[in-house]
Design a protein around this nucleic acid. Structure first.
Lengths: 370, 370
DNA sequence: GGTTGCTAATAATGCGCATCATCAGATTGA
DNA sequence: TCAATCTGATGATGCGCATTATTAGCAACC
């Protein structure tokens, strides 16, 4: 059984018309002044119904139409246990948007893996061509790899802000800066003064943005910035106690759960003695873990928005043969670079600072605030 | 910038050879006695390197090669919050397998949705053609929809056992029967006698299999089967207490968490007074929820195995033009229908029955709702 | 010197579809 | 009555690639 597909030619034969006629009926529109009588149209449609004809997408794409496929490239595996919680929400949003756009999603799982990360090498992005455009998800990328996409004018959108590259690349990011600023504001409103920033330095955009937000907000309130960037959770906790911070903001990749445990082990209750705000969702939510206060990254919406944008770019760049005059408006700069608000999360890890001179000597004056 | 792709013809021009030669170099193999000298080969390869040529998958596919794309069709959205925990593991396995196979995964998110379920209608499976084959995930399907796939000899594999259809359809399922039998065995080994089955009747395969397993095992041990199939959790709990069950097996979609709470509210501790075994993973794991005993469905492995099988089917059915004689062995029947073992889970919801006559004054039991 | 045998490559074809250019026949205008 | 217009369709072409059939060139053999 050679699995021969039914083609337009088959349909045409049955309807007693030419292949071209079938194509015209299917595409509705008749670019050049081609007309099809209603009767013929019906005959063709009947034949289609009977034969169960189904278009060959590869042929369509080859013939210059869009494949209605949008790709998703992640620099790490998308669904391994560890990162499922991370990528999941993005995919949720992407899938939702894809449904509404009537588009299929292609996951580039075939890309060669090096050091546990997928590479967008020659053989990698080669495959991107199947899709009309592609979403890029994940941290790092080798600069050169992108160049090719740019050179060939291949439509793509980053998920996550792109500070580098002169800001010319399309992205949908999250407002880590604003979110962080608001957390500091909250703490200050509660009366906190000694507010530390816990988190390893990094060159990734979220980290840079968090630090910037922290810096900005502290400056605004005339407070001194204090960074704790130690590898060790225990050391970090010790530092927090030592520095007599009444509050810290923590990037989620810095094991906040363990940190809080460590703090309490040292007699500092969260949030009664130390408020802890999380600058993003916990990475590995623990069963029965704390209800973190802080902000959350709107990952689902980011995914959806990114796909919508990509779709815009694709149809903008569009079918090479300029077919429809009534093309949607060109993509604006504002669309090209979207930063979404990270809404505050009201959890249970923030409280006013302990009253009095503070837990300075830690042996007495453990007065619970009323 | 009209985004013109670089084609084999471009490469050929640069290398001073014909397009065909480029194709031969790329494909390595030379089906008919075509030979390419090492020198020419290098020249072509250089040209490819310089131009950054990249094959157009659509054209490849049209020309009769495999697209190296395998599809995944789910009858419900794959990643919505609610079912993410369910589909996630499958996807994990699928992705892993796809990586190893060097294949991309296409999610058919464009299928028309009716009643919240995707349909594999004419316009739905029409799109399946982009992929070389397809995985089918999720419960129900309209019989007629499949017929077309069968008619066109389109390769596909179900995830989840397929009892119907004369068992001719390829699937990778889980051994719910065996898993359930073992749970009963465990309970009996602990000394339980009054073992109830909690779960709504249904015609879906997992339910049928669980019931079959329960029936079989109970019969083996000479025990009376007792079914509790009430809509209401409270009523179910009441029934369990009323019937003086010392243990129940519960299908995960029947809100085991709530049920256990309800039991304890009625003074029956789990597992001290009543053991509860879960016939599958909890559907919506609750933060800080119970550690359920029972068995687990190897969803990741199911996904991976299904994809491997699909890959086999595809390359078996293969490129229409019989190119390689050294084709792998044909797919055997054993491969076509795989049932994976559901390993036991040692949790904290099983214990020996309460000692003494206790709550079991009954010598006259008669409860079979079957 | 013509036939055979071999190497190295090319020309030609088709995959299924969209689309452009063309055309047959009917209707109208003068 | 013949050109001009309109209607309804068809033929031909190309997308980029794999593949088959064919050819050109050259050495070897009797």
């Amino acid at each position: 059984m050679p699995r021969r597909r039914i083609t337009q030619t088959d349909v045409a034969a049955m309807a007693g018309v030419s292949q071209a006629t079938v194509s015209f009926v299917l595409n509705g529109s008749t670019p050049a002044g081609v007309r099809i009588s209603e009767e013929t149209r019906q005959r063709v449609l009947d034949a289609i119904r009977i034969t169960g004809y189904t278009a060959n997408p590869a042929a369509q794409r080859l013939a210059g139409r869009l494949a209605q496929i949008l790709g998703v490239f992640t620099y790490e595996a998308t669904f391994p246990r560890a990162s499922r919680d991370f990528y999941g929400p993005f995919l949720t949003g992407i899938e939702h948007a894809a449904e509404r756009l009537g588009v299929d999603i292609l996951l580039f799982t075939s890309a060669p893996v090096a050091d546990g990360r997928r590479r967008l090498t020659r053989d990698g992005w080669q495959r991107l061509g199947v899709a009309d455009g592609c979403l890029l998800l994940g941290q790092h990328e080798h600069r050169g790899e992108l160049q090719h996409l740019l050179d060939t004018n291949y439509p793509f959108v980053f998920i996550g802000k792109r500070g580098s590259d002169g800001g010319r690349l399309p992205y949908v990011g999250a407002d880590y800066v604003g979110g962080t600023v608001r957390q500091i504001d909250r703490l200050v409103a509660h009366g906190h003064q000694r507010i530390g920033y816990v988190g390893m330095r990094g060159t990734d955009q979220p980290t840079l943005d968090r630090v910037e937000g922290y810096r900005t907000a502290m400056k605004t309130h005339g407070l001194t910035t204090r960074f704790v960037e130690l590898e060790d959770v225990a050391a970090t906790a010790a530092e927090i106690v030592d520095q007599r911070f009444t509050a810290v903001v923590v990037a989620p990749e810095n094991h906040p759960e363990e940190l809080a445990d460590e703090l309490e082990r040292r007699g500092r209750r969260v949030p009664d003695d130390v408020s802890v705000l999380l600058l993003g969702q916990p990475h590995h939510p623990r069963r029965g873990g704390r209800q973190w206060s802080g902000f959350s990254v709107p990952r689902e919406e980011m995914g959806a928005r990114a796909l919508y944008l990509l779709s815009r770019l694709v149809s903008d760049d569009g079918p090479r043969r300029e077919r429809d005059a009534r093309r949607p408006a060109a993509v604006t700069d504002a669309e090209l670079h979207q930063i979404l608000v990270c809404p505050d999360v009201e959890g249970a890890t923030v409280a006013p600072p302990p009253p009095g001179p503070g837990p300075r000597t830690a042996t007495h004056d453990r007065t619970d605030h009323a």
